[in-house]
Computed example of a mutant assay.
Amino acid sequence: MRPLVPPPPERSAELRRRFAEEARSPRPDLSALCLLVGAVADGALDEAGLDAAQVELDRLAGQLPFRPGGPRAWAEALRDLLGGRYGFGGSAGDYRRLESSLLHSVLQRRRGLPILLSVVWLEVARRAGAPVYGVALPGHFVVGFGAEDAAGERVLADPFAGGRLLSGADAELLVLQATGVPLEPSMLRPADPLEVVLRILNNVRAWAAARPERSDVALWAVELSLLLPSHPARLRYERAQVLVQRGEFVRGAAELEAYAEVVAAVDAPAAEQVRQQARAARARLN
């Protein structure tokens, strides 16, 4: 397995600028955002590689039947092409690999996490003109075909399982296994591109959190998350913690103090605790 080496600082800064610009555009492009995440993670992904990944998505879309029919026909066509002919899918082992969260790698390996495989399904289907949208079920991302609202036929497919079509009972079971609670209608609403990207970055942060030696990955994942127009304020606290973990005590302390100012307006005792953490970080310089 080729080790992932991040790009040099100048290239990384340019990629982040482009990521922020795309995220703030009127209609953010999901594939572009996911590929920029990959380029920040993998310095070997150059401009030619970014273009090649988009071309591959176009190529796959070109192999779908022309307007095969209703939502079920579209879902079956994607299943047969991506899950069947090309073998896109996932297994438990894919959760242990950072590459499973990077779109360019998923296109090459045809393996990945549910959400990245769903991105492949979404982007290929969208290019072919399918009525498709992402569905962020708790713990397991899937793809919906058909009307985004309650009207008309809707079909769910699980790209992680090769595009298996899901019955209502199947979807119920996925949610129950992930959360222990029943499926609610609100869980079936379409996910917008920025929600998808934030969830991908959440997965990367979770991967890095389980590997303290990969604080470099934790840092770029949280910093990209902070570039999204809407993100949890607590990410600033997480970034500060990662900086301290990496020995960047001054920057970490400054981030903690800035976060404390935000918290102070709603929870003064919590803000004071964060300030104490900032003082402790600065004390580690002595």
Results as ranks from 00 to 15, higher is better:
V5C: 09
L15K: 06
L30C: 09
L30R: 10
L35S: 11
L36Y: 06
A39R: 11
V40G: 00
L50W: 00
D51Q: 15
E56G: 01
D58N: 07
D58I: 00
L60W: 12
G62C: 08
Q63D: 13
G70S: 14
G70M: 10
P71S: 13
P71V: 11
W74D: 09
D80Q: 13
L81E: 08
L82Q: 05
G83V: 04
R85L: 07
Y86R: 03
A92Y: 12
A92S: 10
R96F: 12
R97Y: 07
E99I: 00
L103K: 03
L116M: 14
L122V: 06
V124H: 14
R126P: 04
A128G: 12
G129Y: 12
L137P: 08
F141N: 04
D149K: 07
R154Y: 10
V155C: 06
G162R: 05
S167V: 03
S167K: 08
G168P: 07
A171K: 13
L176R: 15
G180K: 05
E195H: 07
W207Q: 01
A208M: 05
A209Y: 01
A210M: 01
E213W: 13
D216K: 04
W220C: 02
V222I: 15
L224W: 08
L226A: 01
L226C: 04
L228V: 09
L235Q: 13
A240M: 09
V244P: 07
V244E: 14
Q245Y: 00
E248A: 13
F249V: 02
R251N: 08
R251V: 01
A254S: 14
A260W: 08
Q276M: 11
A278L: 08
R282V: 12
